[in-house]
Amino acid sequence: MPLIIRDFRPADADAVLEVRRAAVPFLVQTREALIEAVAHAPAAQRARLLVAELDGAVVGVCRTGLEHGTSEPGHAYANPQVHPERRGRGVGGALLAAAERHVGAVGAVRVHSWVLDEEGPRAFAEHRGYTSSRASHILRLDLAEAPLPRLPELPAGTGLRTLGSLRAEPRPLFALESEAVLDEPGDVVTDTLDFDTWFADTFVHGGIDQELSTVVVVDGIPAAHSYVETDGRDRLASRGTGTGRAHRGRGLAKLAKTDSLGRARAAGYTAAFTGNDDTNAPMLAINRGLGYEYFTGERRYVRDL
């Protein structure tokens, strides 16, 4: 049967998640979160989830669309992933070409893609005109065996909240995140977060676990957070850890992440993944102090259309 590239359908969810589990096990999501994220992606993002079907089976997937939350126009993303047993048959190239056609048609002039830092994936990207721009470390924590630091006694005025408990009062949390993302290393600055889009991604359709994600509050105001997403089975992955500028240097990011990991362990999760830009020394130090170990690397590749 010929190779078919088409848009995702809800019935594809289980197959897509199995492709990702085999190709990029550090990217985790539940079936329900995947379907919700595709159905409710912001219109301005022009997002599509493409799937590759070969011999009647889903063997590859590619998220693509325009970068949002930035004042820099024309940036897009395309992240093809192919089941390791089905590589070398043109699946990844077909997915990437379809993604480039899509984002080019909706105004993109530059495409960004995350690529495993291995010889084959790097050669795939470079053969198609992509240039490496930055590196990222993917770290893994064995939640079943590795000891977690004990939570310290909290200073006066400092408390720990679940993310879900802040849904009724989200504006201070939005202010915290809008500030924290400005200092994240990256090729595209996130400087125009929209509240409604952020709220939907954080509390409604984005897949962030509301009970396992922790927010540190100081005098009742969010000061640091650690968000996670799970696969609903045994793995979780960081969806962002940040601290407001006025509260940095006090260990609040580590406090938030330690509490979140403890909740996850108690819920039965056995593996935790996180990714850090290789220039982000503070977060790399926090994660290694928590017991994370190197799992694999990624490189960010860029191509001008």
Rank of each mutant, 00 (worst) to 15 (best):
V16E: 13
P25W: 02
P25G: 08
L27K: 14
R31Q: 15
R31W: 10
E32W: 07
A33T: 13
A37K: 15
R46Q: 15
G56R: 01
G60N: 10
V61D: 15
V61R: 10
C62W: 12
G65S: 12
L66F: 11
E67I: 11
H68L: 05
S71I: 07
S71Q: 11
S71A: 13
G74K: 12
N79A: 13
L116V: 09
P121L: 04
A125L: 06
R134G: 08
A135M: 05
S136Y: 08
H137E: 14
R140L: 11
L143R: 08
E145Q: 02
P147M: 01
P149C: 06
L154D: 14
A156G: 05
R167S: 04
A168R: 03
A168M: 04
P170Q: 07
R171L: 00
L176Y: 11
A180K: 03
V181Q: 09
V189S: 13
V189P: 14
L193Y: 14
D196E: 15
D196V: 06
V204K: 01
H205N: 07
V215R: 03
I221V: 10
P222C: 04
D231S: 00
D234K: 07
L236G: 12
G242Y: 07
G244D: 13
H247Y: 15
L252A: 08
L255Q: 12
D259T: 01
D259Y: 00
D259R: 01
R263P: 04
A267W: 08
G268T: 05
A271F: 09
A272M: 06
D277E: 06
N280A: 05
A285Y: 10
T296E: 14
G297F: 02
E298W: 07
Y301Q: 09
R303D: 06
L305G: 12
